[in-house]
Every structure is written in C-alpha cells, then in structure tokens.
Design a protein around this nucleic acid. Structure first.
Length: 293
DNA sequence: CGGCATACCTGCAAGC
DNA sequence: TGCTTGCAGGTATGCC
C-alpha cells in the first residue's frame, strides 16, 4: 500500500524505536529483496547510530553517524513492525506481538534501546541500500527524482512548466516520479477527483495562459497537497491505535473517494455519475467521467 | 530523449 | 471443491 502518506506514517512510527539508538545486531535472512543487499550489510550497520530518519519521495532514509545513509523502499508489500518498544515503560507503549508472518520477515534490526524492528515483505519488491552521503546525488535511484509534492517546489508554476510539452495523459504525468516524487496510483486518482479533472486529459492542458498558471492548474496542485495532507493526518491518528494493537506501522484502510470504487455512485452530492475503472499505461484508473473533466 | 510495455514475486479473489 | 486467471498500491529496464 505504501505511497507517500504511508511512508511518512511509517517514518513517524519508527522514529522512537530507531532515532538515537544504535544497531546492536542486524539479522539478514536472505541475500536479496528486490536487489541484492549490499555486501556485508549487517556488519556495516552494526554499531552505527541513527542520527535521524527522513523521508524522500517513497524512500525512508536513516542517516547514520558515519556519513552513510540506509535507504529503504517498501515496494508494494513492505511493512515494518516494532516488536519491542524502545520505551517499554511509557504509557501506550508498543505491545510485544509478532507479525504472524515470520516467513516473510527478511530483515530484523535489534536496536541498542531494546527495540526490535522487523522488515516483512511478501512480494520482495522492497529495497535497502547503504549509500555514502556524498554519492547520494549521483545515485541511480535518487538523481532523477522530482520535487516533493508537499514542499514549496510543487507550485502551479512548476507543474504547468513541467507539463507544457508532455505528450501523455495527466494521470501518467502525475505518476511520473521524475516530475513529482511520491505520488502513486491511489493518490493520483484521488487528487484528480478532488480537482475535478479527467485522468485522460492531456498533461499539456495545464499550460500557462498569458504566462500565469490557470485556475485548473492551481486547483490540481492544491488537490495534490490536500489529499496527501489528509492521508498523513489520518495515518498519524491511526498510528497510535495501530501500535497499541500489534506494533504494525503502516497503513490502515483509508477511505477513498474513487479508488477501488468502480461501479459505485460518485461521492459528490451534486453529481449523479458513477465511478468507472479504466486502464492507462497498464495501471487501473478510477474516476467519475461526469464530474471530472 | 520521451513514452510505453514488460518484468520482478507472491497471495488472493473471482470465475469456471 | 479445485483449478486457472487476473489483479495488486512499487520501479528498473529495454524497446520503439
């Protein structure tokens, strides 16, 4: 499930277990996830202290003392679970319950503060690497990433300019990590719905008018930010409950306006349309053709 | 180069 | 019930 809001929710959940602590031991139960893990992965992590845990696009970035970054991507099915809290005496501390799916617990971090962090990934589309911070700008996976959607860089001016000559749909343009980094299939559908824009519209229809971004473009940028903000807020409020329950950090079932709702009536009271599912670039798109133009 | 299909891997639900 | 098929929110890769 992880798109930007879920990754941000996981980041916040992992922070108390990892930041400030050292890797006391690291269990690496297989040689690869999506890619081979780096040579001596466990050995290189052991003894390192986590300075801070950041998010870039859909990546979690643990900055280590030695100027190295542990980059983690959850792929499609990656999950973190904190089994032992780093702060067991705190009210509402994380319960000590395993995931129940040990077969896919591929990586285990044993932290110096007593926290144990499991990385579970059924499909193994996830990814971890150790990158020297100086190499980060040139790293294959990071050098082409576009702007953070929640930052000031994503403005109507930016989006209009980035899309001005695009020969593809608005849907595909918003999913392109080289333009905006962190949106995935769900939130692109949801943002287009909020902005009342058809996913089939050409991306170049966001072009500026007389040098200024159109109202349509402003609406879309606002919708992108709003939908992500709302999902993060919902994730944050669910996180506390989730941690108390079983330590899972992740995602809970958000309620979506269009995603996964093919055949149901449009959520807009003023609209009598139905949500439909189409396929664009091999991915499902959900939208209401009557209010999304 | 841009745009697109394909592949990676496993589990699950739907359909026959 | 059991088997097959299609589908899944990720991105790297290669082809045109």
């Amino acid at each position: 499930m992880p798109e930007l809001p879920e990754v941000e929710t996981v980041r916040r959940g992992l922070e108390p277990a990892m930041v400030g602590a050292r890797f006391r031991a690291v269990e690496q139960r297989r040689a690869d996830l999506r890619f081979p893990l780096p040579e001596n992965f466990a050995e290189r992590l052991t003894g390192e202290r986590v300075e801070r845990l950041e998010r870039r696009a859909k990546y979690l970035m643990a900055w280590l003392d030695g100027d190295t970054v542990l980059a983690m991507h959850l792929g499609m099915s990656g999950r973190f679970t904190v089994v032992h809290s780093g702060a067991p005496d705190r009210p509402g501390a994380i319960a000590n319950v395993p995931t129940g799916d040990a077969a896919h617990d591929h990586i285990v971090f044993h932290m110096s503060n007593g926290a144990t962090v499991l990385y579970n990934d059924v499909r193994r589309f996830g990814y971890m690497d150790l990158i020297e911070s100086a190499q980060l700008p040139d790293h294959k996976l990071f050098r082409d990433l576009g702007v953070e959607p929640l930052g000031d860089e994503l403005s109507p001016e930016f989006l209009a300019h980035a899309c001005r000559a695009k020969q593809t749909s608005l849907k595909a343009a918003l999913l392109d990590q080289r333009l905006i980094a962190g949106l995935g299939n769900i939130y692109v559908c949801e943002a287009l719905y909020r902005a009342k824009l058809s996913p089939r519209r050409g991306a170049d229809s966001l072009a500026t008018k007389a040098g200024a971004p159109t109202a349509r473009t402003q609406r879309l940028v606002a919708a992108v930010k709003d939908v992500l903000d709302d999902a993060i807020e919902a994730g944050g409020s669910s996180l506390r409950d989730y941690q108390q329950a079983d330590g899972s950090l992740g995602y809970f079932q958000h309620s979506f306006a269009v995603y996964g709702r093919a055949g149901l009536s449009c959520a807009r009271k003023s609209c009598r349309g139905r949500v439909q599912r189409i396929v664009q670039n091999g991915r499902s798109t959900f939208f209401c053709a009557s209010c999304q133009r």
